[in-house]
C-alpha cells in the first residue's frame, strides 16, 4: 500500500505542517473572530431588544397605574361633590321645614288665641242671653219685672256652678 511507503513521508509531513499552521493562523486571525463577532452582535441585539421590551412593558404598566389612579381620584372627587350637594340640599330642606313648622305653629297659636277670644265673647253673650232669658221667664211666670241686679248675680252664680 502506498500509505506505508516512506518515500513520501517527508513531503506529506512538510505540507501537512505548512497547511495546518496556515489554517490555524487564518482561523485565529480572520475566520473565527469574524464569526464570533457576528454571533456576539446577534446576542447583543437580542439582549438589547429584550431590555427594550422590558422597558416598554414597565412604561405601559406605569401608564396603567397612572390611569387607574386618575380614575380613582376622579371617582372620589365625584363622590365628594355628590355628598356635598346632597348635604346642602338636606340642610336646606331641614331649614325650610323648620321655618315652615315655626310659621305653622305661630298660625296655630294665633288661631287658638282667636278661638279663645271668640269663646270668651261667646260666653259673655251666653250670660247676657241667660239674663234676658231668665228675665223673660221671670216676667212670664210672676208677671213682674225682676230686679236686674239680682238676676245678674243669680246667672253668674249658676254659670259658676256649671264651671263656665
Amino acid at each position: 500500500m502506498p500509505q506505508f511507503d516512506p518515500t513520501f513521508f517527508a513531503p506529506q509531513l512538510f505540507w501537512l505542517v505548512l497547511t495546518f499552521v496556515t489554517l490555524y493562523i487564518l482561523m485565529t486571525s480572520v475566520a473565527l473572530p469574524k464569526i464570533g463577532a457576528v454571533l456576539d452582535e446577534r446576542q447583543r441585539k437580542i439582549d438589547d431588544n429584550l431590555d427594550k421590551a422590558a422597558q416598554l412593558k414597565a412604561e405601559a404598566e406605569a401608564a396603567v397605574a397612572a390611569y387607574e389612579k386618575a380614575l380613582a381620584e376622579s371617582r372620589a372627587h365625584a363622590h365628594s361633590v355628590i355628598k356635598e350637594a346632597s348635604d346642602r340640599l338636606s340642610s336646606e330642606a331641614e331649614e325650610r321645614n323648620r321655618a315652615l313648622s315655626a310659621k305653622l305653629s305661630e298660625q296655630i297659636k294665633a288661631g287658638e288665641a282667636r278661638i279663645g277670644e271668640a269663646k270668651t265673647k261667646a260666653l259673655a253673650n251666653v250670660r247676657d242671653v241667660a239674663i234676658d232669658v231668665a228675665g223673660s221667664v221671670f216676667d212670664r211666670l210672676i208677671g213682674a219685672n225682676a230686679d236686674a241686679a239680682k238676676l245678674e248675680t243669680a246667672v253668674a252664680t249658676a254659670l259658676k256652678e256649671h264651671g263656665k
Binding site: 518515500t7 513520501f8 517527508a10 513531503p11 506529506q12 512538510f14 505540507w15 497547511t19
Partner: peptide, 9 residues
Amino acid sequence: LDISFTNSS
C-alpha cells in the same frame, strides 16, 4: 529533504 508538492499537498 524531499518536500515535493504532490497531489496530497
